[in-house]
Design a protein around this nucleic acid. Structure first.
Lengths: 223, 223
DNA sequence: GACTTTAGTCACAAAAGGTGACTAATTCGG
DNA sequence: CCGAATTAGTCACCTTTTGTGACTAAAGTC
């Protein structure tokens, strides 16, 4: 993330690291090297030898100490919008991290998505893009499980889905659907959380299941 | 798509143009400028002033005479794989075109996806990526309608879905789901196709409809 | 006019999904 | 020690959605 006076064409890799902090999603920011009062998404100039995914993982590891549990390219950005490194092209990635195991290195902080610091226009587009991708992947990839620690209660899982969908879910329906999908298996541990009956801990363990037998889905279109 | 001896860092925009040709999807290829015996996806060096989307649309327009009915960025590619222009980074787009209105300019040809010409490794990844995106967008965006002419019969629409899903669909279910989604409206025209009762023509005309009331969908995950 | 072919609809059964009420296991306050 | 409060987990019922075969409709063919 060194400064580089704009010399010929060069490109960066930027990473939007997302976690679930309590009742809100949060994104990781780094103090800008040029202006210590400003924050930016972690980024680096791309290395020619490395794949873009490898670069993105390395950037995440540098700020978090460990790689994200899931990472995906959002898009390349090349419009006229300003970028902190003045890059011609920036390739943005979104990565997920369970909040429990994610302790940012000094100089890096989680900001709740509802209260982000001022940002360069290009990086703002990246944040928006990462939110869109998370929404879109929610029922295609096991995103929710990548935001939770290895074992979790079904209550935690449901709360996370309610956060990601911004919608209350009914307990019985949620569990019935989860069972039908063969995505989790119970451990033999239970967690007592203050008062109330202890909750059983589950782990993400998807089983092969026969290909869905359903027809077309017009209902998800155009939301 | 000019030749350019690899000089410092530069990037290209490549476009995968897809159409539905009879019972198969087809992709548009251009004769390579350097080796007239080889084919490649249409590509150009990116212009600094233009957005990536604008460049992609322009490239498509240059080979087809008109812009695609839908276009979306697939991804940026920067691994060591070879690219016909020796670009460091290539940003790939997928575009859709109805076959009826798409007449490629001389030097460009549709190849059915089952029988593609030899391709540089990077462009092969782009073709694979475009197929993945089309599959994934199928129930999120009105992709199918962008592969059909302005008016079409419900039989044609269903056949296209069967092609895209590689799966037979039941006529009554298909139409019931289509009606519930308020996506098409009938015109007052009918088309007689040889023998059999004539089919009514429809047009794509999505109506606003209340947000779906459903809970989570675990069933689409991990296919 | 009878037969074939394709379009379009209906009605029933099966599956999936929404919902409130129930049981279970724990803490807390007396 | 006992009952209220609290959170977890399940059940049963009903509604909605979806799969499916059979039906009617309108054209061409012989």
């Amino acid at each position: 993330m060194r400064d580089r006076s704009s010399k010929s064409s060069y490109h960066t890799v930027d990473v939007v690291l997302v976690t679930a902090m309590g009742n809100e999603l949060a994104i990781l920011f780094t103090r800008s090297t040029s202006d210590r009062e400003r924050w930016s998404l972690p980024w680096k100039a791309a290395q020619g030898a490395e794949t873009l995914d490898a670069t993105a993982t390395r950037i995440a590891q540098d700020v978090l100490g460990e790689p994200p549990t899931w990472i995906e390219q959002i898009s390349a950005f090349a419009d006229g919008k300003r970028h902190p490194g003045n890059a011609d092209i920036s390739v943005a990635f979104v990565g997920l991290v369970p909040h429990e195991t994610a302790s940012p290195r000094p100089g890096n902080t989680w900001f709740p998505v509802g209260d982000l610091p001022p940002l360069s226009p290009r990086q703002r587009s990246m944040v928006e893009g990462s939110m869109r991708i998370i929404q879109a992947r929610l029922d295609q990839a096991p995103i929710a499980f990548r935001l939770l620690p290895p074992t979790f209660t079904l209550g935690e899982l449901q709360q996370l889905y309610e956060l990601l969908l911004s919608k209350r879910l009914h307990k019985a329906s949620f569990r019935r659907a989860l069972q039908a999908a063969w995505l989790v298996e119970p451990t033999d541990e239970w967690r007592s959380e203050g008062r109330g009956r202890p909750a059983q801990l589950y782990r993400y363990a998807p089983k092969k299941r026969r290909r869905s037998h359903r027809g077309v889905r017009f209902d998800l279109l155009h939301p």
